[in-house]
Design a protein around this nucleic acid. Structure first.
Lengths: 152, 152
DNA sequence: GCATATCCCTAGTTAACCGATAGGATTTAT
DNA sequence: ATAAATCCTATCGGTTAACTAGGGATATGC
């Protein structure tokens, strides 16, 4: 199960990405609309800003906007911000590989081999699908160049 | 990341399944061989017994044996025993479905839709691959009837 | 230039869970 | 009887999840 934090992050991101171009959404507004504890959401949006996904404006009529286009932000990237490595075993993480302490032979480890199959399958989806895809309800496998996506 | 408990369970199961037919393996023996804390492993083996996967004999020359054939025990089944539901969202679990409390419309939830893709992909692997497959190093997609598997 | 609305930052709280550890009770083979 | 094994329950220290709280910094609009 993914954390509430990650779930809230996705809700907020989808809302911000769906807003009219250039229009900022406030944390309070999003919190109200999706019944997310406000102060908790603030932390989350801050994390997304630090990660370079959101931009923000302060003061009256401030709020959050996308820093990068929504179809360059994958579900996997967001998930990693809030959940850490997605790999089921440390020895399967590419981005933050760690050897299993008690592992004798990685190459011959049946557990590693089997989980690699499962992880590959889910990672392929999570790293391919973007916030933009989700909003457009683009079927998987239809990989258009970015310009075409925006146009359509 | 999966828990140590689950990882230990897989190590133990693979060892027990790989033992000569009818030969029981002791918790102490497995613990020593794989550097698993003995008392911790006992609890794990007990859980596997309660789940109907292992059988046990007590007293001197006792130990654990498979109750069901290794190629009927999937990675998914074992994982669920120790980690609970594998679904990334409660509303995606078939075996223990729960509605997201604050969900307005499940059918229109983008988060649910995207995670369903990823979960389907990994579940398909985890529920198909068995302890027996892992030991035989059977490539995925080769689905032999059970008798043939045992023979080969 | 002041009130207000917003984002920004840090710390604390509570409950649950993980990864054991501990101590014994029960069963069985010799 | 003894030793070796499983079985059962309780406890514990550390970490994390999910908030809660309190304020600081900054921009806007009157």
């Amino acid at each position: 199960m993914i954390s509430n934090k990650a779930k809230y992050a996705f809700r907020a991101l989808l809302a911000i990405a769906a807003a009219p171009e250039g229009e900022a959404m406030t944390s309070a507004g999003i919190a109200r609309r999706y019944s997310i504890p406000h102060k908790f959401l603030e932390q989350i949006l801050l994390d997304l800003k630090k990660a370079g996904i959101l931009d923000s404006r302060r003061g009256k009529s401030g709020g959050y906007v996308m820093l990068r286009p929504a179809d360059t932000v994958s579900f996997g990237e967001v998930l990693r911000i809030f959940e850490g490595p997605l790999a089921p075993l440390p020895c399967l993480s590419r981005q933050s590989y760690r050897r299993c302490e008690d592992c004798v032979s990685e190459a011959n480890c049946e557990i590693r081999r089997e989980f690699a199959r499962s992880y590959d399958a889910s990672r392929r989806v999570l790293d391919a699908r973007t916030i933009g895809d989700a909003l457009a309800n683009t079927p998987f496998g239809v990989a258009l160049p970015r310009e075409d996506r925006r146009a359509g």
